[in-house]
């Protein structure tokens, strides 16, 4: 297993965080959050990858065939479900913000200061 996937993970994570930090548009910011989460998918799949192994379905192949780790794939799937819930909720907030205040800029939305 090469180190290449993990360099990609770090890169995607960094890009996503940079996007969240510099974003001036809520929808863009939420998409950047999805980018951050995408780095976890690559990480999970990269952790379970085996060179030359097949997908973990043993329907028509011998059960001792080398296969990639199915557990991380289940984790990635759960991760996708979590992401769907969080993203849907955040986008609903963004829609509300736009409906009520006509802006999606976090700076302009700022009303809370403490």
């Amino acid at each position: 297993m090469s180190i290449f996937p993990f360099i990609v993970v770090a890169w995607v994570l960094a890009v996503g965080l940079y996007g969240i930090i510099t974003s001036r548009h809520l929808v863009h910011q939420i998409v950047c959050l999805i980018v951050v989460q995408s780095s976890t998918y690559i990480l999970l799949l990269g952790v379970g990858y085996k060179t030359g192994a097949v997908a973990p379905y043993f329907y028509d192949i011998p059960t001792n065939t080398p296969a990639v780790d199915p557990v991380v794939q289940a984790l990635a799937l759960t991760d996708v479900v979590v992401e769907a819930a969080v993203t849907a909720l955040l986008l609903a907030f963004a829609v509300q913000a736009h409906k009520r205040f006509g802006t999606l800029d976090p700076e302009e939305l700022r009303q809370l200061q403490g």
Binding site: I20, Q29, L75, L112
Partner: peptide
């Protein structure tokens, strides 16, 4: 329907989600 709750909830959700995904990377 108010501006404050939307802003507070967005800050809460984005910061905590970023934290959660960093935790998930550690778990991976």
């Amino acid at each position: 329907e108010e501006r404050g709750p939307i802003q507070g909830a967005l800050n809460f959700a984005i910061t905590n989600s970023v934290g959660a995904y960093l935790s998930l990377s550690g778990i991976g």
